[in-house]
Design a protein around this nucleic acid. Structure first.
Lengths: 239, 239
DNA sequence: ACAATCAAAATTGTATACAATATTTGTGCA
DNA sequence: TGCACAAATATTGTATACAATTTTGATTGT
């Protein structure tokens, strides 16, 4: 179960002490990453509190922590919503990833152990399995986990924290702008990275990661997406 | 008053809606950046609440937001403290800055306007004035503001957010590990950067920023600092 | 039918009360 | 004096109550 292992590192994304606030953060975080919560969804304090059996105090703290990572947007007196990254934000996030992650991959190639390689391979296998099962959300989530695990292996916690945050937000971006929703997003890049890591070839790892991210970026359809619900009435009128 | 202008951008460091929670965040943030709050200082909820005339609810939210940026550490059932970055963290933060800020400087050199140049110059002047007045805290804070303003000018909000966060934490690092506490930290690098910006010389800007950050990094005395208060009794015993 | 307006309901913002956990203080004992 | 232990105090964690604001829904008039 690779997810458990990552969960251990995940807590530092929120910088919160163990407790129910953190639990709720992680649950909602996972739900967003697996695309079970769509961008724009209202996260009512009462509703979330009832689901997890917690009071508003705790839920509120969790939502504010999620807001800080950019996964949730809080509007004054209106509450919390799953974030809807703009096109500009999408470009910026992938530009940041293209800057940071290749460097991280270089460090990973130097530091990686046999055990780490096995962990990464487990991610790839699990992702493959999820795709086979038709669980797209899980597959995407695991694809992100592959990247965060690479950052963990690099052993640079500050950069790893940034990568985790960027990847979480990338998940939202993909759910909004991915060109081929029904297409497997698994490229051969992850396999190529594995090879470079196994050979401790840091130059290759950096280069592969860089082009992989450029590929991902260009796989996005970054044009205005029409909002569906707001104009629902108008849509029905025309029919 | 350049600070006012930056304050406008600063709110996004916390991703909070306007309100007293954000106000308290900004006040404590400023206090830490100006070294009026030393690393390790306990931030009691009641105490902070009384100072700013707010209830614990609001203060708590502010402290958690600050914790998320890494300026404050929250320990379960023990409360919030001004963070004390470890030596490892210090290295990692400056490594991250050396990766991100040169790239940002490159973008800035391309995008900068006359008005922006004036803003940057105002920072330099204010810093010089603060040094002249002997207000070291303010000077350091303004030195950081110079870097964050550069990031704002670059127009890449995601990277700018990261830079702001890194610089805030750098301020803590400097207060803990700076080699020459009584020495002016102003290098000629900022002036050299201004020249490169004015000439839209992005290659030079990137290179200067890179070596500037390496200089800063090497200006730190990254060895264990003895904690003073804990062993106060022992110290007095020996005397 | 449609728009405007206002009351009712629901939701968030904040303060406060109580419970759980640390910290401090004081006491007894070696 | 020094240490161990226990009561008292202080602080944080959580739930709840109330105020402020927004959203919803009904009513009215055109």
């Amino acid at each position: 179960m690779p997810e458990r292992k990552d969960a251990h590192h995940l807590h530092d994304l929120f910088q919160l002490p163990p407790g129910r606030t953190l639990d709720i953060c992680l649950k909602i975080h996972a739900a967003i990453l697996e695309h079970r919560l769509a961008p724009g969804t209202k996260l009512s304090e009462d509703e979330v509190g009832e689901i997890y059996g917690a009071s508003r105090t705790v839920v509120r703290a969790a939502l504010q922590a999620l807001a800080h990572t950019g996964l949730v947007t809080i509007e004054k007196n209106r509450g919390a919503f799953v974030a809807k990254p703009s096109i500009r934000e999408a470009h910026e996030i992938f530009e940041a990833r293209a800057l940071i992650e290749p460097r991280v991959a270089r460090m990973t190639a130097k530091a990686i152990t046999e055990n780490d390689l096995a962990r990464l391979q487990a991610h790839i296998d699990a992702e493959h399995q999820a795709l086979h099962d038709g669980d797209m959300g899980k597959a995407l989530s695991l694809s992100g986990a592959f990247h965060t695990t690479i950052a963990d292996i690099a052993g640079q916690q500050v950069l790893a924290h940034m990568v985790r945050s960027l990847i979480s937000r990338s998940s939202l971006i993909i759910s909004m702008y991915w060109k081929r929703p029904d297409t497997a997003c698994e490229s051969h890049s992850h396999h190529a990275l594995m090879k470079a890591f196994a050979e401790h070839d840091s130059d290759a790892a950096e280069e592969i990661q860089k082009s992989h991210l450029i590929d991902l970026h260009s796989g996005l359809n970054l044009v205005e997406v029409r909002q569906q619900h707001d104009s629902l009435k108008d849509i029905l009128r025309t029919g």
